[in-house]
Design a binder for these strands. Structure first.
Length: 672
RNA sequence: GCCAUCGUAGCUCAGUAGGUAGAGUGGCUGAUUCGUAAUCAGCAGGUCGGGGGUUCAAUUCCCCCCGGUGGCUCCA
């Protein structure tokens, strides 16, 4: 972040010398901490050894973090000053924000001005922030009235240990630091929001008030952050969706279920059609599966056991039990099971824009990003173990192709989640009985681990299925030269996976695509194919989604483009406005020609003025506004205004040529 | 599900210290014939989220429910 005028400065220091002494006078108001051998120190600290001290600039990323941390303390200082019975718990920093949790009576943003005023006062007084080293017992004494701090002290310090506490005026904090040298360094800050949380994130523990804020080295940076935040809020897909009339919710009749209006359905269908093309060219055959199943299938798949509280389940008059599908895989498996397969038939790859229903708890829903019914661009590949590599490579090629086309994004990151071999009990793995040599698969987390054949407990874990599959994923990533990060222990219990994140125009990272290997469903549904040597073999299932869900992807799309979608996705591609009624015929005719060329066009022949028509249609974000009057009629041309409000005159046929190419090629940029 | 907060016209919002509501915008009608972000006038629209309580009287105060929003937890 930041880095405005920040250069790394190293200065030699002798053991025992105070860091403060080596900071050049002219940098005093920018340098807030130092670092030697990767350890951060306060400026009031003494060097622990001879060496080169790196001066930490408040404008550096490191400095910003320290500033945020000190600002959090400033907040706690102010809160405890104002609300005498407020007990500070703990704080944390994110990239540009901090929060502090308190046990206190609820506050609202209306109380912020009072708290901010107090913070300003403390900052203005430029109170020294000093570190004091004390024994655990002394620290416990200081915080004797705050049980949260006592927990924290006991968690972090062994008996007879010493630690630091920070003191600014009367306010004390149990903290490792480092901090800015005095409160005056916290020059530009603002409280942002308030919410609630549970102590230690445990839902069973008491409620706390969490106050969010931000801080920057100067007002200018603060204001630009606030402006960006404001802009991001304006880009909220719910707001854009309402302005463009794309989708709606009826909270009385179908809470959490998105309805697509005609405009929204256009976008959704364009995305679906594009995915169909891509699926087709990569060998994924489209299928269609039912939305309602008898609950036996969910019992067989294991979803019932694990997720029955989150499923839409119901009973008919005749006593039959049904459930709406929470996932598409059992449906695809059902289709797969209609045949017997040879190793030559593999892989079998089914895809579907599959709508699933999950009963999200009321507080967990939110716009299109977390609805109760949503459609996944789902795909299930039934593959031989030796085909995992090839299929993964194919998928890893699809993903960037799609996101570059639609979003124009280059920033894509890959996470590989693998097994934690120290805890085989958390995963579905193979075991071999040392007594009778039986091989079986089991997830041992809550079950007793013994041989199903002879009952022996003398078992050997066999990771070979996991190892081979994981190696294939790794090799696929390496083959394509993709940088990735590996996360041991993050794999699903049924197999390793690759998650793919995309950065949007606002710099936010979204997890969209996922490629998951599954050893579990093939066992549950007893899937098999016949191998070369006439033996039954279990296929591996690859679950994959590229967009993730259409709902969430549309939300991201809208925010990424601020609603100004590429023309091929735009519900309204051209909007024709006559200068006055006298040119209605010409405008209608232009509109007709455009429509005949499969361009989504409308003409506005209402009695409003030209300016007003433009004003009103803007929120709809048409790709091109076409204005025609006497000049155009005489010259047989159109005046075209693009999404950036630039204007150009076109001969109608030329314009149609251009826009058709723009649409066909899924261009992000407009023709001018 | 938990905590906080909100729910008034299609939309954005005002208001009533308890006496059943108002603006802008959109809609409709008419006038205006217009050159790139609001031409003028008139009209219609609301059991103030739902239910219960207190009161002579509730949109307003209290309780319960349903939803939205920001978080927590969860997210196959």
């Amino acid at each position: 972040m930041l880095n405005t005028g920040y250069k790394m400065i190293n200065i030699k220091i002798k053991k025992g010398e105070k860091f403060n002494n080596i900071v050049p006078e002219k940098l005093k108001d920018k340098i807030i901490a130092t670092r030697i051998n990767d350890k951060l120190y306060d400026l009031y600290d003494e060097a622990p050894e001879d060496g080169e001290a790196e001066l930490i600039d408040i404008y550096s990323a490191e400095g910003e973090k320290i500033l945020l941390h000190s600002a959090a303390h400033l907040l706690a200082n102010a809160v405890t000053d104002i609300y005498k019975n407020a007990l500070p718990n703990t704080s944390n920093e994110d990239e540009n924000t901090f929060y502090y949790d308190f046990k206190m009576d609820p506050v609202s943003i209306e109380d912020f001005p009072i708290i901010e005023k107090k913070m300003e006062e403390i900052a203005k007084n430029n109170i020294k922030i000093e570190k004091i080293i004390l024994s655990k017992e002394e620290i416990l004494k200081i915080f004797k009235n705050n049980k949260y701090k006592i927990d924290k002290i006991n968690d972090n310090l062994k008996d007879n240990m010493e630690s630091s506490v920070y003191k600014q005026g009367d306010y004390m904090e149990f903290c490792r630091g480092p901090h800015v040298p005095s409160t005056g360094y916290i020059k530009a800050f603002k409280l942002l929001s308030v919410s609630s949380t549970n102590y230690e994130g445990d839902i069973n523990k008491e409620k706390m008030i969490r106050i969010y804020g931000t801080a920057f080295p100067d007002k200018k940076l603060l204001n630009s952050f606030l402006a960006k935040r404001e802009e991001a809020m304006k880009r909220d897909h719910r707001r854009i969706g309402a302005e463009m009339d794309l989708f709606m919710f009826d909270n009385e009749r179908a809470p959490g279920m998105p309805f697509y209006t005609p405009n929204g359905a256009i976008i959704r269908n364009e995305l679906i059609n594009y995915m169909k093309e891509i699926n087709k060219s990569h060998g994924w055959e489209e299928v269609w599966t039912a939305h309602v199943f008898k609950d036996i299938i969910w019992k067989q798949s294991g979803h019932y056991d694990k997720y029955k509280n989150d499923m839409f389940l119901f009973e008919l008059q005749n006593g039959d039990h049904y459930g709406l599908k929470p996932m598409n895989c059992p449906g695809h498996i059902t289709i797969f099971q209609r045949n017997a397969y040879s190793y030559r038939d593999m892989p079998v790859k089914y895809s579907e824009p599959g709508t699933v229903y999950r009963y999200e708890k009321s507080g967990e829903m939110g716009g299109l990003t977390r609805p109760r019914g949503f459609t996944i661009d789902d795909g299930h590949g039934f593959v031989r173990p030796d085909q995992v590599l090839e299929e993964t490579i194919s998928l890893l090629k699809m993903v960037p192709e799609i996101f570059r086309t639609i979003l124009g994004t280059e920033e894509i990151s890959y996470d590989l989640s693998v097994i934690d071999k120290d805890h085989p009990e958390n995963y579905l793995v193979s075991y071999i009985c040392n007594n009778c040599s039986t091989k079986f698969e089991m997830r041992a987390v809550s079950k007793e681990l013994k041989c199903p054949n002879c009952g022996s407990f003398d078992l050997k874990v066999d990771f070979s299925m996991w190892d081979n599959a994981t190696d294939s994923l790794r090799e696929a990533l390496k083959t394509l030269n993709l940088k990735y990060t590996e996360y041991p222990g993050e794999a699903a219990f049924y197999g390793p996976k690759i998650d793919i994140h995309i950065k949007d125009a606002l710099g936010r990272l979204w997890q969209l695509s996922t490629i998951q290997l599954d050893f579990f469903m093939p066992i549950n549904f007893d899937l098999s194919y016949i191998d070369r040597d006439d033996k039954k073999v279990r296929p591996i299932i690859i679950h994959r989604a590229i967009y993730g869900s259409y709902e969430r992807f549309i939300a991201i799309l809208l925010e990424h483009f601020n609603g100004k979608l590429p023309t091929w996705l735009s519900p309204l591609q051209t909007y024709v406005i006559p200068v006055s009624d006298n040119y209605n015929d010409y405008a209608s005719n232009i509109n007709k020609i455009l429509t005949e060329n499969n361009i989504r066009s409308k003409a506005d022949l209402s009695g409003e003025t030209l300016s007003k028509k433009i004003k009103l249609i803007r929120k709809m974000r048409p790709s091109y506004i076409i204005v025609v009057g006497e000049k155009e009629q005489n010259a047989n041309t159109i005046s075209v205004r693009n999404r950036k409000d630039k204007m150009e005159i076109f001969e109608i046929n030329k314009f149609i040529d251009y826009i058709k190419k723009e649409i066909e090629n899924h261009k992000i940029d407009q023709i001018f």
